[in-house]
Design a protein around this nucleic acid. Structure first.
Ligand code: SF4
Ligand code: SF4
Lengths: 143, 143
DNA sequence: AAGATTTGAGACTCTTTATTCTTAAATACG
DNA sequence: CGTATTTAAGAATAAAGAGTCTCAAATCTT
């Protein structure tokens, strides 16, 4: 699995928030309901994004979560690394320590290229790029 | 994590076998010792490769495992799919069902390209290509 | 002030993956 | 035959990930 389930949920929720037209905070309950997730579980995941400075939260009635920055300034890689950590973009394919530092295997070069492409894809894609797509059709975020 | 730990171990062991110059069967105990793995655990993993027709095994003294086919005819993707299954090369990045069939997000096209590149990398690279590398220096398979 | 709403934090349970352990089956050799 | 060697199979345990539950803290409304 490329991304953990928590990470998938976090990304989908972040996209949901960036797509919600209203200005204020969106209750987690609403998000979880719309995306078919457990509210408790999603709350836990979104706390990680809040701690990472990607989301901001507000308690009480009319509370919820919102993007801490404009969607155009949140790259997907920030969400991924906040939840799954940076390992995916740094690890050796065979799980060996000190990737490529000594005796790199021929796979190394090819893998590095793919890994960098993957990192670039996540780093250059922002939430608003996904949210603005589909020309009004709406991005599918639930099954 | 791109590949499970079992899969990493299986790949490393398969590379080890394809690099061992001797003709006969290599005892799992020797492999596990050289690669710093538990013999019991590796045995279990290699059984999956044997069942998949990638390795052949032989019991008793002078027994062990060997490639069922020449290393030049074993693509890495076979090992990966025998252990981790084909999900990695088929799944949606956000874990949504029916990837791309309806309302594909803009990430979809980019992700499909990367996924296909990844699949191609595993599909076109064979064990002997890795084993023959490093011009005698030897491929590093242990930490 | 009182009660309702909503996130924060953490304990807890369940499931999957990782790892170890035990026993059986096949093979070689004296 | 009897014993040592080695894989096969599967139970048992440990660790990590996924998901649930409880309670506290902040905030709003009345
Ligand atoms: S060279 Fe290949 S096997 Fe060695 S650390 Fe890099 S990716 Fe891993
Ligand atoms: S379009 Fe994007 S989000 Fe939708 S299924 Fe394909 S990869 Fe997943």
């Amino acid at each position: 699995m490329l991304l953990s389930k928590s990470c998938e949920y976090g990304l989908r929720a972040a996209l949901y928030v960036s797509m919600s037209e209203k200005e204020g905070y969106v209750p987690i309950r609403v998000i979880s309901s719309d995306l078919g997730m457990s509210a408790h579980f999603l709350t836990k995941i979104l706390q990680q994004l809040t701690k990472a400075g990607i989301l901001k939260s507000f308690r009480g009635p009319n509370g919820g979560i919102a993007l801490a920055r404009p969607a155009s300034q949140v790259a997907l890689i920030e969400v991924v690394e906040a939840i799954d950590g940076p390992e995916l973009f740094r690890e050796c394919m065979l799980g060996l320590p000190g990737c490529g530092e000594r005796q790199p295997c021929p796979l190394h070069n090819k893998w590095m290229i793919e890994r960098e492409r993957l990192a670039a894809l996540f780093a250059t894609t922002t939430l608003d790029q996904l949210a603005d797509s589909s020309e009004g059709v709406g991005v599918r975020l639930a099954g």
